[in-house]
């Protein structure tokens, strides 16, 4: 549900409309829960609690069971994920060379904590144990690209490359 900016009323967002179409397709379809969850994640980018509750009601499955299925499979996310995943290496080499400073700078820049996602869903920030690029310490990975020998002042330019 979205809230209408003019009237303050609860209105069906385009996403909710899509979810309803999806549910219509799978209502009464045996074993439809997983395809519905996959479809819902496509629509919303993740699986918000309210969506899970709606799915549970519409498919007439206990909410606890729906939650159990969601948390079993690696594909499903309960929190929004960014379009770009930043992994900050906090392995020994990076730590010694100021990896945590880089991490802090990124947190400040993006306004999120570890595991958090920016509101515009542009970035998700995570820390990792070691990405095996100690020679480039301190380093981060954005999606599949490694950026090494970082200084905090370089971060802004690097982030600019990812929309």
């Amino acid at each position: 549900m979205a809230v209408c900016k003019c009237t303050g009323e609860q209105v069906e967002s385009p996403q909710d409309v899509q979810l309803n179409e999806l549910l219509d397709h799978y209502r009464g379809y045996a074993g439809g829960l997983i395809p519905v969850l996959q479809g819902a994640q496509e629509i919303y980018g993740y699986l918000p609690a309210e969506v899970l509750e709606t799915i549970s009601q519409e498919l007439k499955l206990p909410f606890s069971e729906v939650f159990g299925v969601v948390t079993f499979y690696a594909q499903f996310h309960l929190k929004p994920r960014g379009r770009n995943i930043i992994r900050v290496c906090l392995g020994t080499a990076c730590h010694v060379l100021g990896g945590s400073k880089i991490f802090q700078a990124l947190k400040d820049e993006l306004g999120v904590e570890n595991g958090g996602t920016t509101e515009d869903l542009r970035f998700t920030l995570e820390s990792v144990a070691c990405i095996g690029a100690c020679g480039l310490a301190p380093c981060i990975m954005i999606n599949d690209d490694t950026h090494g020998r970082l200084v905090t002042s370089a971060l802004k330019n690097i982030l600019e490359q990812y929309k």
């Binding site: 045996a30 074993g31 439809g32 829960l33 997983i34 395809p35 969850l37 996959q38 499955l61 069971e65 299925v69 079993f72 499979y73 690696a74 594909q75 499903f76």
Partner: peptide, 22 residues
């Protein structure tokens, strides 16, 4: 039926449960 990311679903009875939406 597309899987959802669980290696154990290669086990045949787990796979059946997964097709059934569990």
């Amino acid at each position: 039926k597309a899987g959802a990311g669980a290696f154990v679903c290669g086990e045949e009875t787990a796979l059946l449960n997964s097709i059934e939406g569990q």
